[in-house]
């Protein structure tokens, strides 16, 4: 059980919540995630990155985008509601050291998991360039928080409604062409974005770390549902990751696997929204 301490809506479908979870707050490190359920009998177990933590308050912060049934339902929870199941911190923490010049690329909701990593990299003495991108201005999140960390800050929107009208790969390519080129790139966002960031840096041989968001069930290495091809090896994202060398990840396979249940998930979402609508009508 975990109580919701705070809730904020960022954009139409992006929400932030602070959850009471003192043990997780104490143990968590950048790059780790939790798994939660909105119902511990029939609910799905969904992974979400720990975007921040406050050991004094004993809380962790999650930032999530509504994409399906469970995230939709989560968005209907309010302050003081209890989440029936919350487990973590899971995954291997990000390896943080002073690499030198690091470029952090965050796309869409990926900015949320990027935030604690960028923070830790900055603290470790790196020169941190942050590129954030979104489809349009209204979908940008955590702009001020990221700006506060960055030595250099670049915003892109697909439609040019804010910042540069470009995909995040455009400024990334320019940075790779500069001397000195970056010592490392960290890219977190939709799988397609991470794929193209990796393709962008490959010719420049800039190590590119990605954070994979595969389908998960247990999050402890028991089911193998989260497996991905990394180079010649098969890795479990929940225990070996979620971070991997983007130049080795088989993104096409990963994207296919993410779509395993697309039709069923769409159906669940539709049913949930329709039911909620009906309940509202009854109440009214």
């Amino acid at each position: 059980m975990s109580r919701i301490l705070f809730k904020q809506q960022f954009t139409e479908d992006v929400f932030l919540m602070r959850l009471h979870a003192p043990l997780i707050a104490e143990e968590r490190q950048a790059g780790q995630f939790i798994i939660l359920q909105t119902d511990d009998d029939f609910g799905e177990r969904i992974p979400l990155t720990i975007a921040d933590a406050d050991t004094k308050e004993g809380s962790i912060t999650i930032i999530f985008q509504v994409v399906g049934k469970t995230t939709k339902q989560l968005s209907t929870f309010s302050v003081d509601d209890e989440l029936p199941a919350l487990v973590g911190p899971l995954g291997t923490p990000t390896h943080i050291e002073n690499f030198g010049r690091v470029v952090c690329v965050g796309g869409g909701i990926g900015v949320a998991p990027l935030h604690p990593i960028a923070q830790a990299l900055k603290k470790a003495g790196n020169h941190v360039t942050i590129i954030t991108g979104a489809r349009t201005k209204d979908l940008l999140i955590l702009e001020n928080e990221m700006k506060a960390i960055a030595d250099e800050f670049i915003v892109c929107t697909d439609d040019g409604s804010y910042g540069r009208k470009a995909l995040v790969t455009a400024p990334l390519k320019e940075l790779c062409e500069q001397t000195p080129k970056p010592d490392m790139v960290i890219s977190i966002g939709p799988p397609v974005m991470m794929k193209f960031c990796s393709e962008t840096t490959r010719p420049y041989q800039v190590f590119t770390q990605v954070s994979l968001n595969t389908i998960m069930v247990d999050g402890t290495g028991m089911c193998g549902g989260c497996r991905v091809n990394v180079g010649k090896e098969v890795k479990f994202v929940c225990v070996d990751g979620p971070e991997f060398d983007g130049h080795l990840v088989d993104f096409d396979n990963m994207i296919n696997r993410l779509n395993s249940y697309k039709d069923i998930e769409r159906h669940h979402y539709k049913c949930f929204v329709e039911n909620a609508f009906k309940e509202q009508e009854v109440e009214a």
């Binding site: 089911c223 193998g224 549902g225 497996r227 991905v228 098969v234 296919n256 696997r257 395993s260």
Partner: peptide, 12 residues
């Protein structure tokens, strides 16, 4: 082909 969509461990 063991990571194709539709291959599961029995555990999963």
């Amino acid at each position: 082909g063991e990571n194709l969509v539709g291959v599961f461990s029995a555990n999963e």
